[in-house]
Design a protein around this nucleic acid. Structure first.
Length: 617
RNA sequence: GGUCUAGUAGCUCAGUUGGAUAGAGCAACAGCCUUCUAAGCUGUGGGUCACAGGUUCGAAUCCUGUCUAGAUCACCA
C-alpha cells in the first residue's frame, strides 16, 4: 500500500471492534487535551459534544463549542478556530476544518475512510458484537395467540416485532431465546368448542377444505351470533342487559364446559385436544409463511396453575393481603395504582397469578438475565403491576422484566372488530401481498425469462418484504393505521425499494464477473473519491451504532429507517457515477467494492428485520 | 375521575443523551431509459412541529398547564 494513515495502522495493532467508535473517542480526548493546554482548565467530558456533521455542511464530525465558551472566555468562532487548529496539528487523520457560528466541522482524510471501508470488507458480520465479555441470556416472549381464531394483522405486528427484536438483540452478543406462550384454555376456547359441537355437524378442516384455525374461528363467530340472539330474546322478555348476558343459555353452557374441562372430563378434553390441534396446525402454516419461529413453545393449559404457591408465600411474607372472603390482593396504592386481585375467593387463579408463576419459571428454565414481553399497549397496566409485584416479592429479576409495548394497528374507520368482520386476516393479507407482487412483476416484465418456481420465490420475497417493512418501519410504541383499500406500496420508502437496490447491486457484481473483473479484498486508500462516495462510507460507519441503538430501544424501526436511507443514497450514487464503465481501473474497483459492502449491509440489516433480499427482481 | 401513550406537510411516517435552514415517501405537476435493473433518478409546490407559558447561548426534543385521540383502572384474559 502506497499510502499510510493512522486508521490502518491502528487496525494492524488492535482488534478493530473497539475502533468503530474510536475516532469519536480520539477526537473527544484531544479536545479535552486542547482545552487543558490552551485554556489551562479541565472540563467535564460531558461538555464535549462530538456529533456527525449534518449533510448540508462540509465535514465529517462536528464539535459544538457553545458549552466550552465559559472556559475559553472567547467568542464562539474564535474558540472553535483555536480548537480546530490544535486538533488539525495533533491528529493525523484530520485533513481540514471549518467553523460556522459555534460549530467546528472537522474533515478526516479520504485515506481514513477508505481504510475503514477495507476493514468492513474483512469482517464477517460487520456491526455485530461477537465477543461480548459477559453475554446475557435474554428471553423474548411473543406471539402468544389464543387458539380460538386465526391470526390477524395485530398478531402480524406482534410476530414481526418479536422475531426481529430477538435477532437484533442477538446481533449485539447476547444469547436470545424466543418463546411462545399459547393461550389454549379458558372460556373463549370453550365458546368455539361449544358452537362446533352444536352446529358443526362433525365437520373437520379436511372435509371443509379449510385451515384449522379458520374453521375454528368460524365457530367462535357463530357462538357470538347465537349468543347475541339469545340476549336480545331475553331482553324482550324483560331482563336487563346485564342479566341477559349472564343468563343466556349459551354462556351458561360454555361455563359448564369450562368446569368440565378443569375437572378433566374425558369427552371435553378429547374435543379440546382435537380442535386445538386443528388450530395449532393452522398457526404453524401461518408462522412458516411469515418466516418466524420459536425456540420453545409453552401452553397455558400447562402453566395456568403456576403462581398460586408464590402468591400464598407472599401472604406469609405480608406482601399480600387475604380478605375475609378468602380472596388475595396486593395493595399498590402507595405506587399510585389500585388494589389488585391475585387469587379469587374460591382459591382459583386469575391472569396475573399465572404471569407471576411463568416469570419465575422462565428465569429458572433458562437461567435468564432478562425477559422481554412483546405485548400490545393495552396491557401496559398489567405489566406495570406485574413488575411491582415481583419486586415486592423480592425477586431481583424484577427490574429485568421489560414490556415491549407496541401500539395497535387500526383501520381508517378505527379498531378492528372480529364481530363486525372488519378484521384483516393474516393469511389473506400475506397472500394478497404476494399476488400484488406477481402483478407488478408481470406488468413490469421483470421476471419474464425466469422459471415459474423462480418467479414464485421472488414474488413471495417481495410481497412479504413489502408487508414486513411496512409494519416494522413504524416506531413500535406508536399506533399505526392500515388501509386495506390502499394496498401497501412498492415504491418509495418500502421493502421492495430496498430489495430492488440490493438486487441492483448483485446485478452489477454479476456483470463484473462476466467482464472478468475481480472484486479486490481491499482497495487502494489513495483512490480519488467524490463526496457522495465518502458519504456512503460514513453511513456504513454508522451501522454498528444503529444496531446498538435498535437493541437498546428494542426498535426494529431504527434499523429499517437506516437501511432505507442507505439504499436511497446508494441509488443516487448509482445514478450519478459509473461503476463498471468507469475508465480509471482503481476508481472502478473502489466503486465496485463499495457497492459490494453496501449490498452486504442491506442484506444484514434486512435479515435483522426478518426480510429476505432477492438476487434479482 | 386517576394513570399511561401519542399529536410533525393533504395522507403514511423519520427526526432519541436539547444544536445549524424540521426531513423522506405517497398523492399532484414537470423532466430523465442506444450507457452497469426506470420497482430507479432529478426538480416544483406543500409546515404556527396541537395550543399557551417556562427553562437557556439555543427547544419539534426538557418542565408546567390546556385541548384532542387512544389505552387502561374487572373475582375477564
Amino acid at each position: 500500500m502506497l499510502f499510510f494513515c493512522s486508521y490502518a495502522y491502528l487496525c494492524s495493532l488492535k482488534n478493530d471492534k473497539v475502533l468503530s467508535m474510536s475516532i469519536e473517542l480520539q477526537l473527544k480526548n484531544k479536545v479535552l487535551e486542547a482545552i487543558q493546554q490552551m485554556y489551562g482548565q479541565s472540563v467535564d467530558s460531558e461538555n464535549i459534544q462530538i456529533q456527525k456533521t449534518r449533510k448540508d455542511f462540509d465535514g465529517d464530525f462536528t464539535l459544538v463549542v457553545f458549552p466550552l465558551l465559559r472556559i475559553s472566555k472567547k467568542p464562539p468562532e474564535q474558540t472553535a478556530t483555536e480548537i480546530g487548529e490544535y486538533l488539525k496539528k495533533n491528529i493525523d487523520d484530520i485533513s481540514e476544518f471549518n467553523v460556522i457560528k459555534g460549530f467546528l466541522n472537522l474533515t478526516l482524510n479520504t485515506c481514513f475512510w477508505i481504510s475503514f471501508l477495507n476493514s468492513v470488507g474483512q469482517k464477517k458480520d460487520f456491526g455485530y458484537i461477537t465477543d461480548k465479555e459477559k453475554p446475557n441470556t435474554v428471553l423474548v416472549e411473543y406471539s402468544s395467540p389464543n387458539t380460538n381464531k386465526p391470526l390477524h394483522l395485530g398478531h402480524i405486528r406482534n410476530n414481526l416485532l418479536g422475531y426481529s427484536v430477538a435477532k437484533i438483540i442477538a446481533s449485539q452478543g447476547d444469547n436470545v431465546f424466543k418463546v411462545n406462550l399459547v393461550n389454549d384454555r379458558g372460556i373463549h376456547i370453550c365458546k368455539s368448542m361449544l358452537a362446533w359441537q352444536k352446529w358443526g355437524d362433525g365437520i373437520t378442516p379436511q372435509k371443509a377444505g379449510k385451515k384449522g384455525d379458520h374453521l375454528v374461528g368460524d365457530y367462535y363467530v357463530k357462538f357470538d351470533q347465537e349468543y347475541k340472539k339469545q340476549i336480545e330474546e331475553l331482553i324482550k322478555q324483560g331482563l336487563s342487559e346485564d342479566d341477559a348476558k349472564k343468563n343466556a343459555p349459551l354462556i351458561l353452557e360454555a361455563q359448564e364446559m369450562l368446569r368440565k374441562w378443569e375437572a378433566k372430563d374425558s369427552e371435553t378434553i378429547a374435543l379440546w385436544k382435537e380442535m386445538n390441534h386443528w388450530v395449532l396446525e393452522g398457526f404453524d402454516v401461518t408462522y412458516k409463511n411469515m418466516g418466524i419461529d420459536f425456540d420453545r413453545v409453552y401452553f397455558e393449559s400447562d402453566t395456568y396453575k403456576l403462581g398460586k404457591e408464590i402468591v400464598l408465600e407472599g401472604i406469609e411474607k405480608d406482601v399480600f393481603i387475604k380478605r375475609e372472603d378468602g380472596s388475595v390482593w396486593v395493595d399498590l396504592t402507595d405506587e399510585g395504582l389500585d388494589q389488585k386481585l391475585l387469587l379469587r375467593a374460591d382459591g382459583t387463579s386469575v391472569y396475573i397469578t399465572q404471569d407471576i408463576g411463568t416469570a419465575h419459571q422462565r428465569f429458572a428454565d433458562f437461567n435468564a438475565d432478562e425477559l422481554i414481553y412483546v405485548v400490545g399497549n393495552e396491557q401496559n397496566y398489567h405489566f406495570q403491576v406485574l413488575k411491582l409485584i415481583m419486586n415486592k416479592l423480592g425477586y431481583n429479576f424484577a427490574e429485568y422484566l421489560f414490556h415491549l409495548s407496541y401500539g395497535m394497528v387500526e383501520l381508517p374507520e378505527g379498531k378492528m372488530k372480529s364481530r363486525e368482520g372488519t378484521v384483516v386476516d393474516a393469511d389473506d393479507l400475506m397472500d394478497e401481498m404476494i399476488r400484488t407482487a406477481e402483478e407488478m412483476s408481470r406488468e413490469l416484465g421483470k421476471l419474464d425469462e425466469y422459471s415459474e418456481s423462480e418467479k414464485a420465490q421472488i414474488n413471495r420475497t417481495i410481497g412479504l418484504g413489502a408487508l414486513k417493512y411496512f409494519i416494522l418501519k413504524v416506531d413500535p410504541k406508536k399506533n399505526m393505521t392500515f388501509d386495506p383499500k390502499e394496498s401497501i406500496d412498492f415504491n418509495g420508502n418500502t421493502g421492495p425499494f430496498i430489495q430492488y437496490t440490493y438486487a441492483r447491486i448483485q446485478s452489477v457484481i454479476k456483470k463484473a464477473q462476466l467482464r472478468n473483473k475481480l472484486i479486490p479484498a481491499d482497495v487502494q486508500t489513495n483512490t480519488t473519491t467524490t463526496a457522495k462516495e465518502l458519504q456512503l462510507i460514513k453511513q456504513i460507519y454508522s451501522f454498528p451504532e444503529v444496531l446498538f441503538d435498535a437493541s437498546e430501544t428494542l426498535s426494529p424501526a431504527v434499523v429499517a429507517n437506516y437501511i432505507y436511507d442507505l439504499a436511497k443514497d446508494y441509488n443516487q450514487f448509482y445514478h450519478e457515477l459509473p461503476i463498471l464503465n468507469e475508465e480509471n481501473e482503481n476508481i472502478s474497483m473502489f466503486r465496485l467494492f463499495l457497492s459490494q459492502q453496501i449490498g452486504r449491509i442491506i442484506q444484514s440489516g434486512m435479515n435483522l428485520l426478518g426480510i429476505d433480499v432477492p438476487e434479482r427482481m
